[in-house]
Design a protein around this nucleic acid. Structure first.
Lengths: 340, 340
DNA sequence: TGATAAAACGGCAAACATGCCGTATTCAGT
DNA sequence: ACTGAATACGGCATGTTTGCCGTTTTATCA
């Protein structure tokens, strides 16, 4: 069966394409894992050797690793269409890699989710979001607003609409990555909260096997109870399950603290090396973490019966644009975007 | 890494547990594949040998295959919790195996999806479903109705509610299985229809990686355009992608014809051996088929703004209960469940 | 500048997965 | 009862994947 090896080769090419600089087998193996393909670095080297011979990859230097050759890029262009359908996992990885936030300084770009609503609903939307932020059910208690006519990412906002942006939970992947901690996103799901504590996942969708953001689907399907959770401490909210290398756990804890100081939260639970977390087992040498959904504030808006057009993983945005809710409310008022 | 082999062993035990009678390595391999684990029959035999030695399985006879021993069942009880979370793929398999429909006679049990709505919405629901059936966007143009107080499967219907049941697309798996054709369900998704022809999948969720029925999620999320599609030939409907052995393609075509005669449709497209279908590649020795969503009639109800509680893969039901829409409407009218 | 550490490579061999094939068992039909 | 077809098993050989480890290259820091 030549098929299996070929699949690995194609994936290696893909991993190399995503990287802008030469990378080695270990890094490639990591990328493959986050694409749902478990292979050891040695195996990657084994196939890289063949790819070199076929002229699809090129060994830049013994230390720096490989790059794609022109021929390799071409080859990839012909490859499997399904791979291009754009499973969410790939998008998550790419954005996490492209963002650029300096945790120590608290500045730089982060990843944003956006929701577009009608201007007239803005007041009610603010009311819905408040409790979610207060209950720390979002990545951050900051957000920002864009008005009709403005442009955010590639999205142009229509007249009479406003766009609300919140911090996406994938931002966490980017922050950890900048500390050289690779994060693998495994599931998006619905997390049951009891007495303010995460209890268990009630539904799961694997990131590797979906083209839609699971949390977005759950929210649109009306399966969340975010507001209820924010007010009473019991409910169902969006959350995701990710894995980090066990060796990096200390660093993760440390970063968690720093993030909290910067107004960024989001890690609901951190597991122990090789131990299941919330009944979900992890790969060898890894530990699980449960991350709150960045869309939860939008979920509350949706639950309030307001028509909201969701777009998760929307774009990169500068963190300085994001302000605490009261400030945003005041600003909206001054600019007469809405009246109380 | 002892982990990998162990995972295979556990899965083999699970496959044996699902089967009520002794089965051999090939059948086990098939079950594993539909659980998302690709292993050859020989490999299964390789591990069965070990399991025999460990006393977890027992070789009934050279011809009949293996069963679980008591010790094996116990072992399984301790195994991995995630495996029990109940990914949809497992449920699909089990139901397909348990149903029992004789295609030649046109009688026996099939798998039903149900939707529960308020009695007062019934008239509007009928209106919404009509075009869907006519445009052949459902598995069958038959359905049945249960009133408040009645019981369907384990679901008791509340007063003032009515329950609408339609034929679930997993019924197809069961029918093919009874002809000894194993079907593997790969993706549930949203299929774009152009000029009455399936054009491409716009979203996909892998069955192996989700605990929710993808189509149910898409419908609840309001991502379908079923009615529009039924009326104009252009729209977005629920559909799923499955695989059958290439060798069985002729039989599949034949069965497709027979099903059509029985008022059962559902196969929108049948691929060629080893060739991608709708841009989705298939495993070696298999061919893809696109199957219409059994929930599409419910989708139309939802799109009409009627509050409907969906439950896919709800239960087994006798096909004789299912009647064409006009007949059901007339009956509902006679029984004064609703008035025009 | 020189030492040290990090990251990558690939040879070699072991472990794992699977193809090929001859043999055993059972069912169904004559 | 006998025969042919179907199905399952496991020995042996081959192909894949991976661990172990010594070597090479280069960034970094004293």
């Amino acid at each position: 069966m030549t098929t299996k090896g070929d699949a690995i080769k194609v994936s290696i090419l893909k991993a190399l394409q995503d990287a802008e600089e030469p990378i080695g087998a270990s890094r490639i193996a990591e990328k493959l894992y986050s694409m749902g393909l478990s292979v050891r670095p040695r195996t990657v080297r084994f196939y890289l050797l063949q790819l070199d011979n076929e002229g699809l990859t090129h060994r830049v230097s013994r230390r720096r690793g490989r790059t794609l050759t022109e021929k390799g890029k071409e080859e990839l262009a012909h490859a499997n269409v399904l791979d291009k359908i754009g499973f969410i996992a790939a998008k998550v990885d790419t954005l996490g890699y492209r963002m650029n936030f300096n945790l120590r300084k608290g500045e730089g770009t982060i990843i944003a989710n956006v929701g577009v609503i009608n201007k007239r609903d803005l007041g009610r939307a603010f009311l819905a979001m408040g409790p979610v932020f207060e209950a720390k059910l979002a990545m951050s208690d900051r957000m920002f607003l864009a008005e009709g006519g403005e442009k955010i990412g590639s999205l142009v906002i229509r007249q009479n609409m406003v766009c609300i942006a919140t911090v996406c939970s994938v931002t966490l992947n980017g922050i950890l990555l900048s500390e050289r901690i690779p994060v693998v996103s495994r599931f998006g799901g619905l997390l049951e909260i009891r007495n303010g504590q995460p209890a268990r996942f009630v539904e799961l969708i694997e990131y590797g096997g979906t083209t839609v953001d699971p949390l977005e689907a759950f929210i649109r399907a009306g399966m969340t109870r975010t507001t209820e959770c924010a007010l009473s401490g019991n409910g169902i909210v969006g959350a995701s399950f990710r894995e980090v290398p066990s060796a990096a756990l200390d660093a993760v804890m440390r970063i968690h603290k720093m993030m909290t100081q910067r107004g960024l939260g989001g890690m609901l639970a951190i597991g122990k090396p090789n131990r299941p977390l919330m009944d979900i087992p992890v790969a060898d040498g890894r530990a699980g973490i449960v991350v709150i959904g960045g869309l939860n504030a939008m979920a509350a808006i949706h639950e309030a019966g307001i028509d909201v057009e969701l777009r998760s993983l929307a774009c990169l945005a500068d963190y300085s644009l994001f302000r605490p809710l009261p400030e945003v409310v005041a600003m909206a008022h001054n600019r007469r975007i809405f009246r109380r």
